[in-house]
Nucleic acid binder design. Structure first.
Ligand SMILES: [Mn+2]
Ligand SMILES: [Mn+2]
Ligand SMILES: [Zn+2]
Ligand SMILES: [Zn+2]
Lengths: 128, 128
DNA sequence: TTATTTAATGCAACTTAGTTGCAAATATAA
DNA sequence: TTATATTTGCAACTAAGTTGCATTAAATAA
């Protein structure tokens, strides 16, 4: 018997935030924008649930902090986040470059389960 | 006046460990193998110095924890760690796949400073 | 609508990774 | 050998994330 997930206010609001953000959001950024709607632990738990339900995906930044972005075509690709992510060292924005998909050949004896491609640098906004 | 780095015992031992390991090592793994040679804070500081001196490079794992590996051809490539890294979900080993270099085209208005390509899955040893 | 069930939440406490300030130790060069 | 500045140890701290448990509130059935 698989437990069924509930559509709580916290979950709705957090998903809305992430879906409408033009960039990937960290836990702290979400907490700030939620304005005490719920406890910080609840945010963590909701985020984990949304990842499990494949509505959002995790992006591990170069400093180890996790950011979350809405999934666009994860269903098609078995939730492999196969595109490149960009982390701006100036404005701190983290974005999905959805159509930049690196090509590489992993040796046959490796089994791939998860990908995290992160590039840090200066984004177009900050470069201009 | 740039401050000049010293060749301390801790530094020598830590570099030796990393250079001789067949895989990337985390801070805890290094600490365990050092057997109380020095304080954990010293390990952190030595690791940071070795990274600055481009003798080792950082690899951020999918759980956000940093692993360190010896640099082979970082000098040639401006210390860009441009190859793929593999993190085994079973034996927890983290390895540099030095010759697996993804190709992709970053839009011209992005400036790349750092790369972290991580793939998690099952390594050849654990698959067999 | 109300009652029942079970998932979700809040809160406090905890873990793990990494950083910082400062006094004491030590590598290097004069 | 002595002087100088780098490195170290220690204690305290921060930041990210997790866990246990009692309470609350969705979803569903009556
Ligand atoms: Mn993405
Ligand atoms: Mn590497
Ligand atoms: Zn920017
Ligand atoms: Zn393995």
């Amino acid at each position: 018997m698989q437990k069924k997930t509930r559509n709580t206010t916290a979950k709705q609001e957090i998903l809305k935030l992430i879906a409408n953000a033009g960039q990937a959001l960290s836990h702290v950024e979400i907490q700030q924008q939620l304005n005490n709607l719920c406890d910080r632990v609840t945010i963590y738990r909701v985020l984990n649930r949304l990842v499990e339900e494949q509505k959002i995906h995790k992006i591990v930044n170069t400093d180890g902090v996790v950011n979350y972005a809405a999934c666009h075509d994860c269903e098609h690709h078995h939730h492999n986040d196969n595109h490149v992510h960009f982390s701006c060292t100036i404005c701190k924005s983290v974005t999905c470059l959805d159509n930049i998909i690196p090509t590489f050949q992993l040796p046959a004896d490796y089994l791939m389960q998860e990908m995290n491609f992160m590039i840090a640098g200066i984004c177009p906004n900050c470069k201009a």
